[in-house]
Design a protein around this nucleic acid. Structure first.
Lengths: 213, 213
DNA sequence: GAGGTTTGGTCTAATTTGGACTAAGTTAGT
DNA sequence: ACTAACTTAGTCCAAATTAGACCAAACCTC
């Protein structure tokens, strides 16, 4: 019954290390800040984890309530210690799940109509993501950073989203050329091989240039 | 008790549409091909889903076994219909989870040692991912595409991984400049604002250039 | 013929999600 | 002053998913 503390709980603890938050604020921040990009979590979990932190003595819960219930959490010294230990530990590569790409992968590549539609849909999705990121930034610019997101780190994390959007759009542009000139049925294997060789070359160059360890 | 068919099951169905596979082959492919990048799933689920497909009549299971047990699945006409309907449906933006970045986000930005170590770790992770992708490509090049991964789509999906690695490394290079010249405590807010404005400008340009719908 | 590796899986607890549900305060219109 | 609609601030639970330990047969090597 030894409750263990998971990634979600640690990240909430990380926010509590900066100041006390009500659960609602924590949830709103996790959903609306760049954290939603780095660690998307459902509401129900976000509401559960602070309770666990309190049970474990890593945070202190105080029901501050004129009228409506509203629980405010603050970090304890034990919490700070646990957070510090966790932050010192190793990270982990990013994992992604990309349903549209999966569907593209599984559609018959000779069905150029379906492929074209999927590509258009993916472009829309990427642009929507970009627009959302932009809206987030504009919210921060209008209200002043300090309001929700004081750390310089947040602005750096946001830059990753920008680089990602750019990469994604560049890739989509590349794919458009597929539609413009799809390989014939018997040349498909060679065509794919050409792309693999191109990818391999680029990867080798990247590894060489950046990995002088 | 109406079993529903999930994304994992659909993607396995998509593979079965190409040819019959044994469960083991399906698992190996999901783990070692670019699908592991698009839809990472655990072994236990990958072993469970084909059974469900069989129960629902979307696939047909045949125990082909000289000696050892080995179940081979093939798609049924109902399976093909279900797959087609699913593929025609909408996709979904990519979701990611990036533990290292989360930790970077939560570390105190004035602790340049910790930040530096985290950045170095992230670079290692990205390079490892790139090396793995390269190894995958080389496996395909050596054995011939046809063996496991016949679709041209696979080579295009792989290109996304390349674009992603490139973007990630460019971002890391940008972050290095943080270490070289960290903002002073009282200039931190302005410094972050500068980055936000830069991001906003780039996002607006991207949206304008690519989103002429 | 002993030991290690690969093949081909099963099983379980714990985690996580998705989504329905509540209930109180707040705002806008009549 | 009354009420409808919306936002805030959550709870609850079944179902999906993961992590990872476990198992056993077949193969390879010495």
């Amino acid at each position: 019954m030894n409750e263990s503390i998971n990634i979600t709980a640690y990240s909430l603890l990380g926010l509590l290390a900066k100041r006390p938050w009500s659960t609602y604020e924590l949830v709103a921040f996790m959903e609306r800040s760049v954290l939603n990009y780095i660690l998307p979590r459902t509401r129900s979990q976000l509401y559960n984890e602070p309770k666990k932190l309190a049970r474990l003595g890593l945070a202190h819960a105080r029901v501050a309530g004129a009228g409506r219930k509203r629980t405010v959490y603050s970090i304890t010294p034990e919490g700070r210690a646990a957070l510090k230990a966790w932050l010192a530990g190793p990270g982990g590569a990013q994992k992604m799940e990309y349903l549209s790409l999966l569907k593209l992968y599984l559609t018959d590549c000779r069905d150029t109509t379906a492929v074209g539609e999927r590509l258009a849909g993916m472009r829309r999705e990427v642009l929507d993501t970009a627009r959302e990121a932009l809206a987030q930034i504009e919210r921060i610019e209008n209200t002043g950073v300090a309001l929700e997101d004081t750390a310089p780190m947040a602005s750096l994390a946001t830059r990753l989203a920008v680089h990602h959007s750019k990469a994604q759009l560049a890739w989509l542009d590349e794919l458009e050329s597929y539609l413009a000139d799809p390989p014939s049925a018997d040349a498909a294997a060679d065509w794919a091989m050409g792309h693999y060789r191109h990818s391999a070359r680029q990867l080798r160059a990247l590894i060489k240039r950046h990995g002088d360890t």
